[in-house]
């Protein structure tokens, strides 16, 4: 095994990410996203288990209207994110099976916090109509008021919550 290469300069990565976002605006007429792909998948699950419930629920019905996940732009984009992450990590020798956690957090505590934090983010992203990708980055660069409001709120709450979570990370 080769040693993992150090991470790249974050400013260069940010500019690269910004050019990807700009490319998405110019070529696809829309920005990036992530939580929308999860909503699309959840809609398919509900439609498979209980079709009546899915069609009666405007939130799910909206995601199913354009053919469901198989035709959803964000689902393909998020599949790309996973592939891009794998390839990039593999080329840098950074694929490692394990758990990233704070020095004093047990693996079990870390996984519970990860799943719980994920679920809370899912609720927040559903209400806000997007996450750090679809609102903060995409809407932020387009100067959308709601996106900047979301971004401000998420960092305020994140910094506050982190003060109560020091044992998890420090």
């Amino acid at each position: 095994m080769t040693r993992p290469r150090p991470y790249a300069n974050p400013y260069y990565c940010g500019v690269g990410l910004g050019l990807v976002l700009l490319g998405a605006y110019a070529l696809a007429g829309r920005g990036l996203g992530a939580s929308g792909a999860f909503a699309s998948g959840a809609s398919l699950l509900v439609a498979t288990v209980d079709p009546g419930r899915a069609s009666a629920n405007p939130y799910f019905a909206n995601y199913l209207a354009d053919g469901g996940p198989a035709g959803d732009w964000l689902v393909f984009e998020i599949c790309g994110v996973i592939i891009g992450g794998i390839v990039s990590a593999a080329l840098a020798g950074r694929v490692r099976f394990g758990i990233d956690r704070g020095p004093s957090a047990t693996p079990r505590a870390r996984l519970v916090a990860a799943a719980g934090g994920g679920a809370i983010m899912g609720v927040g992203a559903m209400l806000a109509r997007g996450c750090t990708s679809g609102q903060a980055l995409t809407g932020g660069a387009l100067l959308s008021v709601g996106s900047w409001l979301f971004m401000g709120a998420l960092f305020v709450a994140g910094f506050a919550a982190a003060q109560l979570l020091k044992r998890l990370w420090q």
Partner: peptide, 29 residues
């Protein structure tokens, strides 16, 4: 939604896009 999301972000240490990258590079968390 932003306030709720921020609490979840601090707990999870990852957001939806970065969680996909983390999972892809082998991390169970």
């Amino acid at each position: 939604g932003g306030l709720i999301f921020g609490v979840g972000f601090a707990l999870a240490g990852l957001c939806p896009g970065t969680a996909c990258v983390s999972a892809g590079s082998g991390r169970l968390d």
